[in-house]
Design a protein around this nucleic acid. Structure first.
Length: 260
DNA sequence: ATGGTAGTAGTACTA
């Protein structure tokens, strides 16, 4: 099974691009972030025509996540528990049956957190605490579980072109990186790092200042695997070529190849 | 270089 995550930066502007990529890459499951659409306006028929089941958790203008799956989606949960007043659409989970069981998939869009001095940074850190609490509960089920998404966290210096340039940014602040490590230390495997220790593997290049042309990228899109999922991991690929397509997202797909 | 570019919805906002 190929399980992918991709921040598409707006489904309206990206529909043709996403459809082309799906036809080419043919993932079994695709977790999308920043659909920037309400559920009613999401072009689900276009994906159903390619053989995907579609579940979304959107909101007007910003954020929004989706899960596409060739296999039926048995269960869906929308919203990250732990704060009843949080209306931002950044988290959904789904249970999808496999050849010999099931896998639980999360599509998440972790808050950016900039600027640091605003309330956005504490919101990011609080969101990460809620994610860890949720993850601890799910890990206790001892099932294949994959937390896929845009984490807006650069885990290590080797995950960005110029660490000095990211000093002080919410994506690289010690608090953000420590929260990411705490989540990992609950028992998750960073799928890409389990397969490739090389520096300079990126998943995001800013639209500005020729970041793609200069390869000034960062690695912020991650697939975090429970032990039961990590046992089935066979490889990871990053489809960086789509960053040079017409009208690209600033993120590229990351794909886990699983024996599921 | 405290700029630069892009998406959504309709003038700011988010990143």
């Amino acid at each position: 099974m190929k399980i992918a995550t991709w921040n598409i930066n707006g489904i309206k502007a990206r529909l043709d691009t996403v459809l082309s990529w799906l036809e080419q890459a043919r993932p079994d499951i695709a977790c999308l972030q920043e659909i920037k659409s309400v559920d009613e306006n999401f072009p689900r028929e276009a994906f159903e025509a390619l053989g995907y089941n579609v579940e979304t958790h959107g909101q007007k203008g910003f954020n929004g996540v989706a899960i596409l799956s060739r296999r039926p989606i048995d269960e869906v949960g929308r919203g990250l528990p732990g704060a009843d007043d949080d209306i931002q659409a950044r988290f959904m989970e789904a249970v999808i049956s496999t050849a010999d069981g099931a896998v639980r998939i999360v599509s998440l869009y972790l808050p950016n957190g900039n600027p640091i001095a605003s309330d956005k940074f504490p919101y990011k850190l609080a969101w990460m605490e809620r994610l860890e609490a949720w993850a601890r509960e799910r890990l206790a089920l001892e099932e294949p579980l994959i937390l896929a998404g845009d984490y807006n966290v650069i885990p290590m210096p080797q995950d960005c072109h110029d660490p000095a340039a990211w000093e002080g940014d919410a994506l690289y602040r010690p608090e953000s990186r420590a929260a990411f490590r705490r989540l990992a230390n609950c028992g998750f495997t960073d799928a890409l790092r389990a397969c490739d220790e090389a520096a300079g593997i990126y998943t995001f290049w800013d639209y500005q200042a020729g970041a793609w042309q200069k390869n000034h990228g960062i690695r912020i899109d991650h697939l975090m695997l429970s032990p039961e999922a990590a046992d089935r991991l066979r490889g990871v690929s990053v489809d960086s070529h789509v960053r040079s397509w017409e009208k690209p997202s600033d993120h590229v797909p990351v794909i886990a190849h699983m024996a599921l």
